[in-house]
Design a protein around this nucleic acid. Structure first.
Lengths: 195, 195, 195, 195
DNA sequence: CATGAATGAGCGTTCATTCAT
DNA sequence: AATGAATGAACGCTCATTCAT
């Protein structure tokens, strides 16, 4: 008797809220996305959102926690490895994959920095980034080489979204971005090492 | 007879609005900065803002137009130069200077991309960026080299703000960022050219 | 346990908003009646109004639609009748009754023409009036007779409100107005027909 | 050296304000016409309006006083005449002319009754109307005949504007309206008289 | 598992008006 | 004869949030 739609909906409302919310957050920004809008798209009431999440911010936090777990794991793993070039290149490659897998979230993070900064996930994200940086950077390295590493990170982040405007096969673009990032990290490593 | 404060205020209110607005926009984001807040800081009423600007957006537009003029000029100049390596390096160096001169504005632009995207300055900014890109990139160059150029741009942008957290002399940091960016552009040029 | 007042309020807020709104709109005009005023009279917040209606205009539209339904029906009915004198007299009589039944609304419509003109109900109202006119007027009739019919309509409308200032039994006044209107329509019919 | 425009403007600003104001008041209504709008059309500042008039209401009052003088005179004249049918017919005819001469003002008065009611001109207008009514109506006349006279008045007023939508020569339409109004007054007179 | 009804705070904007110059 | 600069009050509207049912 139940429509398939209704059956599908049973029990997965929480997930559906997260999906729609992320979509809208990424598309329009956090502030400009209202709970009313999210609720309307899901064909539930605003109050229903509050059954599943305590606040608007909590919705975002839950999305962030769910989708950025692989990256957290990656960083945890990386911290325990020796700071060899191979490790660094590995990290860069895996990070590139992780970013691609959770692209909408990271697009959101990049485009809403001002907002995110004083939300709970702001601190979380910053901590992760610093963790990543510490894996890639040798603290006694040349300042220029340190910048190279940071630059590699930004290349991965921004590359993702800015290059979407460009023509061409997305996989090829990602490969190119990865190559440049790897290059930067390798140059930095050689600099620190080489003397 | 008049207090100095009052004298200072005569005639420069428009400028003072822009200053305070930019400060708050950069600090808290565009959406989270209310006109009430701006007005209170200036010790005028909200309505006074509307004497000088037609809308909230107009305040931002006026700031953008005033502060980004040097960059517009730079791009205009660059477009008329031959696409040699020297030109590119020159552009990168000058762009770095221009960014530093209007740092709060560009910090704002970077941290409020989602918001800015559907404001008038969104289009303006995008157009400028594409202009810059077209100066640095050779269209028939390798995809990887194209990414290098875009990466150089982002390094300049992001480097500015992320490296503020780091220890050390700001001028030295800017020099390091500039070096990495120049490097990237040079590598890209050689790639396109050399083969 | 609940106060009667509170019980009364449950579920009929929408209706109460319409009632108070119409009262104030008719008394002071649409523009000069603020949502704050309506809300205060009902002892709810402005935001509560927005739970029940999307905009201020929507409140008015809903009132109009609810109260002018009988007239819409009357016109629909009239359009399907033969254009005999009896039909016309019937329409006039019934229209007079319908106007009396929704007097505050029509008083409002008459006294706020400039405002109503660029609201959604402006068009609706105009359409209805033209429908009525087409029932009463024979298109090939003498211009003077056409005016008589329009005049009959205005007599009904205006009579309602202007004659309130006058002394005397309201029912008698309505009867007098109706007689004059019927007279005008009859004269017009004879003119068109007779010769 | 001066442009003709500027020369024309010398000294007649007050008049120009009235002209533009009436135009906008009639077109959009009193409330929806802001002083900013009037000032902009005249290419002066809002403050300039306040040099010539004390308040927004004063602008309207001055327009009303200037344009409705002929009607005031007409009523004054009428009050001193014997209440014969000829006088009444004369009044109706002359009133019709006067209305046509100041059409925008009377269109405004009709479409902004709710607003005008609590402005100074509200009282003035009402007084005039009652004066007119007292000329046309015999107090001991039948109620129906009294309604006929009021109806004649409304026919003149409304006819003016509603019939603009209709096809045909404006002068002919005015003549038709006048005929109906005269008719109504004559019938009323005969009724009162005849017995 | 969710809704219906409401709130309090705040927002961007507009308005008629004032007054020193 | 008019402007430049500002004000105070209000307005329509939206938002995240709450809570009894």
């Amino acid at each position: 008797m139940d429509s398939t739609k209704q059956q599908r909906r049973r029990g997965d409302t929480r997930q559906r809220i997260q999906d729609v919310a992320l979509e809208l957050f990424a598309e329009q920004g956090y502030e400009k996305t209202s709970l009313r809008e999210i609720a309307e798209r899901l064909d539930v009431t605003k109050a229903a959102l509050y059954y599943h999440f305590k606040t608007k911010e909590e919705i975002l936090v839950s999305i962030f926690e769910d989708l950025s777990r692989p990256i957290e794991d990656l960083i945890a793993w990386g911290s325990r490895q020796p700071h060899t070039l191979e490790t660094k290149q590995d990290i860069v490659r895996r990070y590139s994959e992780a970013l691609a897998a959770a692209a909408p979230l990271f697009r959101f993070m990049q485009e809403n920095q001002a907002t995110v900064r004083d939300l709970r996930i702001g601190e979380m994200f910053k901590t992760r980034m610093l963790g990543l940086r510490d894996i890639l950077i040798d603290p006694e390295a040349d300042l220029v080489d340190q910048v190279r590493c940071v630059s590699a990170l930004f290349t991965l982040h921004a590359g993702m979204f800015v290059l979407q405007d460009l023509e061409g096969d997305p996989e090829k673009k990602r490969a190119a971005v990865l190559e440049v990032a790897t290059d930067l990290v390798s140059q930095a490593h050689r600099g620190a090492d080489g003397s």
